[in-house]
Amino acid sequence: MANRVTISCLGPRPLAIEAGTPAQEATDLMIRHWRDQLEKVLPDRPDLIVLPEACDRPDPLRFPLEEQLPYFRARGNQVRDSLADVAKRHRCYIAYPALTEAADGGWLNEMQLIDREGRVVGTYRKNYPTPDESGRRSVRSGKDAPLFECDFGRVAAAICFDLNFDELRLHYAALKPDLIVFPSMYHGGLMQGYWAYSCRAHFAGAVAGGPCTIVTPLGTTAASSTNYYPFVTATVNLDCAVLHIDGNDDLFPAIKRKYGREVTIREPGYLGSVLLASESDRFRAEEIVAEFGLERIDDYFDRTRNSRMIEVEAEK
């Protein structure tokens, strides 16, 4: 059945707080900042709000590194708890990315996922900090890349520089998430669409100071923020399947004749693939796949690999 999820991504530039501002005063300013920012998307009643990387770190151009650690200690969980209150009152998930202090005095660049009850249901730590982060800033590398089980589907996370590493992308591709959230200070360009298509997942990127984007499993942009407004909200349907045209194309007219607007088949051009989605409350996309004997794209590619392997082995 249709699984429509409304996602908001926010990407304002880091809040400018002057050097020398007392840590608690800076914390109060940050809480007020994010309350104001959230008001821009809450009227759309999103199921999930994604904030950008290190969302509550003051702009380092004005707030120097030596003042950040005292600020983070004073901040503690205050910003997170404020966001948790919003999540509970508005019945939404919030992806809260922040820098926190590790037990050994190092830093953690992580994202905590807050659920509709205001509870933290899981944490993802950036697996691939930049050399500057791991060196000068002593940011520790994350060791795990879990999926978060939400009431609308399975969610994976990547933070900023992570998007450059095939090891993480292939890990997620094997796990088959429904959605990848991407808090960042770096847009990633073509990598956003590549990750979405490779993982057969929707992708929600919240980029500080850059376009925020919601991408389909075909790698196409469903919605984007603009230079005027650093936030975007869109509703996507997670009840979908990525299919290759080969072997399936002849069946698409029969599907449309039988189900009409209850099934959408989107074809982006040049890719040779389509996104089939159930828009009905009566059946799921996987039921259409089974009813018409459609072949999912990964099964099609596996069949190609196996055919080649048999041929190679026969020639030995």
Results as ranks from 00 to 15, higher is better:
residue 3 N to G: 02
residue 8 S to W: 00
residue 9 C to M: 02
residue 16 A to S: 13
residue 17 I to F: 04
residue 18 E to F: 01
residue 19 A to E: 14
residue 19 A to Y: 01
residue 20 G to A: 11
residue 22 P to H: 08
residue 22 P to S: 09
residue 23 A to E: 14
residue 26 A to E: 11
residue 28 D to I: 06
residue 29 L to K: 10
residue 29 L to H: 02
residue 33 H to S: 15
residue 33 H to F: 14
residue 34 W to T: 06
residue 36 D to R: 10
residue 38 L to F: 04
residue 38 L to P: 01
residue 39 E to P: 08
residue 41 V to Y: 03
residue 46 P to F: 10
residue 49 I to N: 10
residue 51 L to G: 07
residue 54 A to N: 13
residue 55 C to Y: 04
residue 56 D to P: 03
residue 57 R to P: 02
residue 60 P to G: 00
residue 60 P to L: 07
residue 63 F to C: 07
residue 67 E to N: 11
residue 68 Q to H: 13
residue 68 Q to Y: 15
residue 68 Q to V: 14
residue 70 P to R: 08
residue 74 A to K: 02
residue 75 R to T: 00
residue 75 R to I: 00
residue 76 G to A: 14
residue 78 Q to G: 00
residue 80 R to K: 15
residue 83 L to R: 07
residue 84 A to W: 09
residue 87 A to H: 03
residue 88 K to H: 07
residue 93 Y to D: 12
residue 93 Y to R: 07
residue 93 Y to G: 12
residue 93 Y to N: 10
residue 96 Y to G: 01
residue 96 Y to I: 05
residue 99 L to M: 12
residue 102 A to M: 06
residue 103 A to S: 14
residue 104 D to T: 10
residue 105 G to W: 13
residue 105 G to M: 08
residue 112 Q to I: 02
residue 113 L to F: 05
residue 117 E to D: 15
residue 118 G to M: 11
residue 123 T to Y: 04
residue 125 R to V: 09
residue 126 K to A: 05
residue 128 Y to H: 10
residue 130 T to K: 03
residue 130 T to V: 10
residue 138 S to E: 05
residue 145 A to P: 04
residue 148 F to I: 04
residue 148 F to K: 05
residue 149 E to F: 01
residue 149 E to Y: 02
residue 149 E to N: 10
residue 151 D to F: 01
residue 152 F to T: 02
residue 154 R to Q: 09
residue 155 V to G: 11
residue 156 A to L: 01
residue 163 L to N: 07
residue 163 L to R: 02
residue 163 L to E: 03
residue 166 D to H: 11
residue 168 L to H: 02
residue 169 R to E: 00
residue 172 Y to H: 07
residue 174 A to S: 07
residue 176 K to R: 14
residue 177 P to L: 03
residue 177 P to I: 02
residue 178 D to K: 04
residue 179 L to F: 12
residue 179 L to A: 05
residue 180 I to R: 03
residue 181 V to E: 06
residue 183 P to V: 14
residue 185 M to G: 15
residue 188 G to P: 06
residue 188 G to Q: 07
residue 190 L to S: 12
residue 190 L to W: 04
residue 191 M to E: 06
residue 196 A to I: 03
residue 196 A to N: 03
residue 197 Y to I: 06
residue 197 Y to V: 06
residue 198 S to Y: 04
residue 198 S to G: 03
residue 200 R to M: 05
residue 203 F to Q: 08
residue 213 T to S: 14
residue 215 V to I: 15
residue 215 V to T: 15
residue 216 T to R: 12
residue 216 T to P: 02
residue 217 P to M: 09
residue 218 L to G: 02
residue 218 L to P: 02
residue 218 L to I: 12
residue 225 S to D: 06
residue 229 Y to H: 13
residue 229 Y to W: 10
residue 230 P to L: 08
residue 230 P to H: 08
residue 230 P to E: 08
residue 231 F to L: 08
residue 235 T to R: 12
residue 236 V to N: 11
residue 242 V to E: 03
residue 242 V to R: 06
residue 247 G to S: 05
residue 249 D to A: 09
residue 250 D to G: 00
residue 254 A to I: 01
residue 254 A to S: 10
residue 256 K to L: 09
residue 261 R to F: 03
residue 267 E to K: 01
residue 272 G to L: 05
residue 272 G to Q: 03
residue 272 G to K: 03
residue 274 V to I: 13
residue 275 L to W: 05
residue 276 L to V: 04
residue 278 S to G: 04
residue 286 E to W: 05
residue 289 V to M: 04
residue 291 E to M: 01
residue 292 F to Q: 04
residue 295 E to V: 14
residue 298 D to T: 10
residue 302 D to C: 09
residue 302 D to K: 15
residue 307 S to P: 02
residue 313 E to K: 15
residue 316 K to E: 13
